[in-house]
Computed example of a mutant assay.
Amino acid sequence: MKVIGFAGYSGVGKTTLVEALVVLMTQRGLKVSVIKHAHHHFDVDREGKDSWRHRKAGAYEVLLASDQRLALMREYPQPMELSVQQMLAQLDPAVDWVLIEGFKHGDLPKIEVWRHQQDRLDSGKPLQPLYAQDARVLAVATDAAADLPQLPTQPVLDLNRPEQVLQWLLARGPQLEYRN
């Protein structure tokens, strides 16, 4: 499987880009998995459903399966942050691509998504790009190349042209092969 991350600040368009890439890849017959970083409490279950009741009763894991879908929910007794590698180990190894959204400080290859955002601040300071300090950022996808805070040494891709991003990924497929 080939693995690539999409990192950047909140609201820059990571989800939109990943969604478009999933569509384009599956149209080409590729099998794609997505790992999305979520913050703290989130739920994929609905109150009152049998699986929710089992989980609330104290089950460590609840696996839901039908002839069309499988979902595994695991409850940790104490907060526990999984590494991206631990999450990758949970996936079907037969997929062609894994697109990882978030984990901007993760240690896998990534594309930084940078949208024109000069008015956005982080702790009172202008947002700093990852590409200037993280060697794992292989490219920058942006809608405003001329407005980047500094000129990247990495390739600059058009955020509004997911087909271009896909072609760039496919051309680099061998170097993105995941080796655990």
Rank of each mutant, 00 (worst) to 15 (best):
D119C: 01
E47L: 06
Y76L: 06
W52Q: 01
G48D: 11
A132E: 10
L88V: 11
P93G: 08
V95K: 03
V95D: 14
W114M: 02
V113Y: 07
L130S: 09
E47W: 05
P126I: 07
L88M: 06
P79C: 08
A94D: 15
E47C: 01
H54G: 02
S66E: 10
R74Q: 15
H105C: 00
I111E: 07
W97A: 09
V98F: 02
A38E: 14
I111C: 02
A89P: 00
A38F: 13
E101M: 01
I35E: 06
Q78M: 10
A38L: 13
L127G: 07
D134F: 03
A94M: 03
S123P: 00
E81P: 07
A65P: 02
R136T: 06
D107S: 11
L70W: 05
M87H: 10
F103L: 03
A65I: 06
H41T: 10
P126K: 11
E75D: 11
Q118K: 05
V137H: 05
A38R: 12
D92N: 11
L127I: 09
H41E: 12
V62D: 00
H40M: 05
Q133F: 05
E112Q: 04
L72Y: 01
G102T: 02
L127E: 12
D50R: 04
Q85P: 00
V137F: 05
L99Q: 04
L91P: 15
L121M: 14
Q118M: 05
H37K: 09
Q90P: 06
E81C: 00
E101W: 03
S51V: 07
